[in-house]
Every structure is written in structure tokens, then in C-alpha cells.
């Protein structure tokens, strides 16, 4: 039983990373008043580029470490560009964010699939970034396996949580982001350039979504396939609501969701006479139940979330 729990927790830490990074990025978007349903599409392009860079250099064989890191960086850069493109549509042209987000999702998934066919040609894999057991710490009973035997990017992702908290709550830029997401007219009257801050937030959020996609191909799946993101972008958006727009609570949400996923895998392996379809639904049901019962969520949400800013209008 102990081994099962250790395995469940180990996989929870490892497999929550893509969701964690993407939802942390989406938090920046939403804090600035924009919700980006296109996260799924941006993750898809990040995933494709995360695969393309090392595959172009070394095929399925090993490549120098910096090539893999370059894959993560290029995935993030592409995400930032897509975030800016989304900004052009919803900030400058003030298109409805929900519809534009769905469009961005379809655009990203379709583009990634098309490029994959053109540049790689079919199902291939890469060596990717290997897990590293931290000397000494990985030998600690129980905790060593759960916390200190992961891919280096896993640790980086967890460090993003305090970093995001610091940026949002302790820096002037973070304050501006919260201001334009809460009361953009007031922020504008104080000289804050609302649209510029929203563009910057979308670039940061997009970069993190692209990075999360690249993480999936470089660190977890080690391959790309059409539809590899498979709804994880939407879960990332839901986790921001789940975590009430706070980095630490979003982290808890990502861990809880992934723990439920890991747990259902373990339950299936017990071979009990229990419908696996229901088990597969459990993590999603959990998100819905928590959102439904967490009535205070709206109080924590950015007041201007989803509302385009027009300085000529008074509302």
C-alpha cells in the first residue's frame, strides 16, 4: 500500500507540470482581464516546436542538452507570439474573447498538425530531457522518490509558483496587471497604458502555454502526435478559476487534479469490478464540483475579466 501511495504521489508531482505551467500563464492573462481559451492551440504549437528543434538536429537520437533547452525556448517564444496575435484580435480589435479563444485553439491545433506533417512527416520520437536523481536528496526514504528524482524542468516549474506570486503581488508591473484586470478605466486615468499591459500579459501567458506544450513533448511524451494536448489547455483555464487566480491555489488545483488522475490509474490496476469510464471522469467531476461549491470564486476574480477596454466608453 505504501509503495502504491509513493508511486501515486511521484507521478502526481511529475505529471502535473504541464498543467501547472499553462495555468500559471493563463493566470497572467486573466489577471489582466483577458481569458484565453486558445491556450490549447498555443500549447499545441509549443509541443510541435519542442519536438521539431531536437528532431531536426539529431532525429530520434541523443542531442546536446542545449538543443533540448532551445526547444523549450522556441516553444515559449512561439507561445508569446501567439499570445500577441490573440492580443491583436481581442485587445486592439476588441473581438469577443470566448469566440476568439476558440478560434485560436483551432488555429493552433490545426497549424501544429499541418506543420508536423510537412516538417516531420509522421510519428517519430526524440530522446528529450531525462530525469535526474538529485545526489543525496533522492536517497531520502519516501520523499526522495516523490520529490527529488524528476526532470530538471519539473523543479523549474515549481519554482515558477513563488516567482509568479512575487511578480503579481510584489512588483509594480504586477500591480499594473491587476489594475487593468480589475478597473481598467481607473488604471487608465492614472496613466497606466491598459492595452500595453494586456499585450504584455498575453505574451507572458502565451510563452508559458508554449513552454508547457514543449514540456509535454520534450520531457514527458518524448514524441508528438496530432491532438497531443487533448484538452489539457482547457483544464488549465479551468484550474485558474479553481485556484481563484492565486498562484499557490492554482498549484494546489493542478496537484489535486493530477493526483485524482494518478489515483484512478492505480484503482484501475487493482482490477476491481468498477467501470473505468467512471474512474476516467473522476478528475473532471472533481473540478466541476469544486467550482460549483466555491461560490466565493467570483469575488476573487478580476472584475474586468472578459471585458474589452475602450477608453472612449465609460463602462
Amino acid at each position: 500500500m505504501g509503495a502504491i501511495l509513493v508511486n501515486t504521489l511521484t507521478f502526481t508531482v511529475r505529471f502535473s507540470v504541464a498543467l501547472l505551467i499553462a495555468s500559471m500563464g493563463e493566470m497572467f492573462n486573466q489577471k489582466a482581464g483577458i481569458f484565453n481559451l486558445g491556450c490549447e492551440g498555443i500549447m499545441s504549437m509549443g509541443a510541435f516546436l519542442g519536438m521539431l528543434i531536437p528532431f531536426s538536429v539529431g532525429g530520434a537520437g541523443a542531442v546536446p542538452g542545449y538543443v533540448n533547452i532551445l526547444g523549450l525556448v522556441v516553444g515559449a517564444l512561439c507561445g508569446a507570439l501567439m499570445g500577441l496575435l490573440f492580443g491583436l484580435v481581442v485587445v486592439t480589435f476588441r473581438a469577443p474573447q470566448g469566440i476568439a479563444g476558440i478560434g485560436m485553439q483551432m488555429f493552433g491545433v490545426g497549424l501544429a498538425g499541418t506543420f508536423f506533417r510537412s516538417f516531420i512527416g509522421g510519428q517519430q520520437s526524440i530522446t528529450g530531457i531525462e530525469s535526474v536523481a538529485i545526489p543525496g536528496l533522492s536517497k531520502i526514504p519516501v520523499l526522495g522518490d516523490i520529490l527529488f528524482s524528476h526532470n530538471p524542468v519539473v523543479y523549474f516549474a515549481y519554482l515558477l509558483v513563488p516567482l509568479a506570486w512575487f511578480v503579481i503581488y510584489k512588483t509594480p508591473w504586477g500591480m499594473k496587471v491587476r489594475a487593468v484586470g480589475t478597473f481598467p478605466l481607473a488604471a487608465d486615468s492614472l496613466g497606466i497604458k491598459v492595452n500595453r499591459i494586456r499585450y504584455q500579459s498575453l505574451a507572458v501567458g502565451g510563452a508559458m502555454a508554449g513552454f508547457a506544450g514543449a514540456f509535454l513533448t520534450l520531457c514527458q511524451a518524448k514524441q508528438f502526435s496530432a491532438g497531443i494536448i487533448n484538452g489539457r489547455g482547457f483544464i488549465a483555464v479551468a484550474l485558474v478559476y479553481f485556484g481563484q487566480w492565486h498562484p499557490v491555489k492554482i498549484l494546489m488545483g493542478a496537484i489535486l487534479f493530477t493526483f485524482a488522475e494518478s489515483l484512478q490509474r492505480q484503482v484501475q490496476m487493482f482490477g476491481q469490478a468498477f467501470p473505468y469510464e467512471f474512474l476516467a471522469m473522476l478528475p473532471y467531476i472533481l473540478v466541476i464540483v469544486v467550482l460549483a461549491f466555491n461560490r466565493k470564486s467570483n469575488k476573487f476574480g478580476p472584475a474586468a475579466l472578459g471585458k474589452p477596454f475602450n477608453r472612449e466608453m465609460r463602462v
Binding site: L216, Q220, A221, Q223, S225, A226, G227, I228, N230, R232, R265, Q268, M269, Y276, E277, A280
Partner: peptide, 10 residues
């Protein structure tokens, strides 16, 4: 075990 769909390689 069953993953619940045909395409999710992750």
C-alpha cells in the same frame, strides 16, 4: 488499464 480514448499518447 484503459485510458478512455484512442488518441492520447501522453
Amino acid at each position: 488499464v484503459h485510458i478512455g480514448n484512442f488518441n492520447d499518447t501522453v
